[in-house]
Design a protein around this nucleic acid. Sequence first.
DNA 1: GTGAAAGCGCTAACAT
DNA 2: ATGTTAGCGCTTTCAC
Lengths: 319, 319
Amino acid sequence: MKRVTIGDVATHAGVSTATVSRVLNGGLVAESTAARVWESAESLGYSPNALTKSIFAGRSSTIGVVIRDLSSPFYLDLIRGIDEVAAANDSPVMLANTYRRTDREAAQVQAMDQQRVRGLVITADETADNHARRMAENGTPCVIIARTAPGLHSVSLDDVAAGRLMAAHLGDCGRSRVGVLSGRHRPTQVKRAEGLRQGLSERGLPQPEEVLVENEDEVDGAVGSLLRRNDTVVCTTGRLTVSVHMALTHRGLGIPDDVGFLTMDDFPWASTLGISVVTQPSYEMGRRAAELIVEEPATPARIVFQPTLIARGSCGSGA
Amino acid sequence: MKRVTIGDVATHAGVSTATVSRVLNGGLVAESTAARVWESAESLGYSPNALTKSIFAGRSSTIGVVIRDLSSPFYLDLIRGIDEVAAANDSPVMLANTYRRTDREAAQVQAMDQQRVRGLVITADETADNHARRMAENGTPCVIIARTAPGLHSVSLDDVAAGRLMAAHLGDCGRSRVGVLSGRHRPTQVKRAEGLRQGLSERGLPQPEEVLVENEDEVDGAVGSLLRRNDTVVCTTGRLTVSVHMALTHRGLGIPDDVGFLTMDDFPWASTLGISVVTQPSYEMGRRAAELIVEEPATPARIVFQPTLIARGSCGSGA
DNA sequence: GTGAAAGCGCTAACAT
DNA sequence: ATGTTAGCGCTTTCAC
């Protein structure tokens, strides 16, 4: 039950703890000694204590990731990108899901700080920013996703461009009566809607009708009201794709014949369902975020990625 | 840049480090002293070092979770259950995704061991068992999901019952020519197929035709061959649901009129698509797994959960 | 090439 | 009620 320590290995191999440490970390040791030490470590089942190691370095080698919603494909790919870079740098990744609960976000960021993570990638709203900024001031590189925040690195999407991409596609498909559904108060979605408006107006198309929802319960009603005056529904967040789609099909509407549908972020069932989307290069965004942590640039970086359209016919044919 | 330590706080407050420690951890301290210490801690921006705390306790308070596939809804709900119990016990959760790569599974388990996690929940195949068993012997409670393993706790589904549930539903819907698609070598899926065979034979229905696949590329071909002699396709793993469904619809087959479809594990789009599934109580399973870690029962526990059928019409009407 | 010893930030007896 | 002291497991000078 008592853990095997470096001291036990030292005794077993008949050397000092310093020597064992050197062997384990590749210092200057005689071949024969090293062999003996490895053997002892092996036979005693020694497993180095990463905690004590970190206490020395002042911080651990772990990269922390605080995610608002693990069930979102966007975040899943983002994480994959982070994992990839972390693995290449021998950094374990500590992932925490906050389930979109603001209080948990702040708490998780603090927990990560207390774990003395090497760096932190956060997707959270403004509440956690203060904690993150303090961490950054203490020398822990923090990368915020999908937003910018003073003093923190940021990796985000060109949201206005995403909106314009949507407008362009709608224009190509001859859709002009557009209803937009967005989450309330979310800066990214505000910008996407803004880009959409810009794009539509540049094409001489009427401005879209916009409705904001707080959570999924409100989607069905919101979609219903949009349908009164529009033939196309645009959703500015992948999170609500399922609900919006359901609101449409429940009404017996066919896509794209009865109503056009366009949303954000690709997902596994999209191709089966023939849903067109504007996607973010989430995997690459994750990689870049992790790289910022590894590279520790001196000044806050602001990295912006470009969106892509995947047309699958849910707005009709892009003649 | 230099981190604020308990010593700094002590100096600032004019007390000893012991007193600060007591204040922070709720020992016996005079009101006035405590107030002064809190104030100092606050003004210096002190953040306790969880690493050094753990080194003392011998292990950290973190619960480790190694997941083979974060993109699976089953695992997502499992994690939610774990998170819930962990949060209630003030345990941070360290999540690692292995992307179904066996080498990463073993590596991640070892990494968790080195982080001296309080306990470990694993979904991995046999390769990682040795490491986990060693951890268990060293006093770290390990819970394995969806399998049993000597010396480890286990939380799993009654897979045979799941198969029988499928058989019962197929029987109710009058489906008798059943083709089964399973992942190769996976014990859970073998048992589900076995339950299916039992259930069908008890109902006097013909035995199903079974085909095994290694990965997603093979699904389309496998489904094609099943369709030659069957009017219903059963999938024993939620992981392949998308691929199988696509293989069906790509052929222009209507569900359930041209072909019946039944699969494992519920997912967000299932209700929209009208796909019937047999589900596991994944959230509860996660809770139970985390509870085992918190409670540390002396002998390995073997917890088995029962599956449920959600009929949505993809096998026809359950007359 | 190897060991002795100091110390990382913190906690827990043991004094006072 | 508070300070002193001795470690926890490990790394890292600094001698030998």
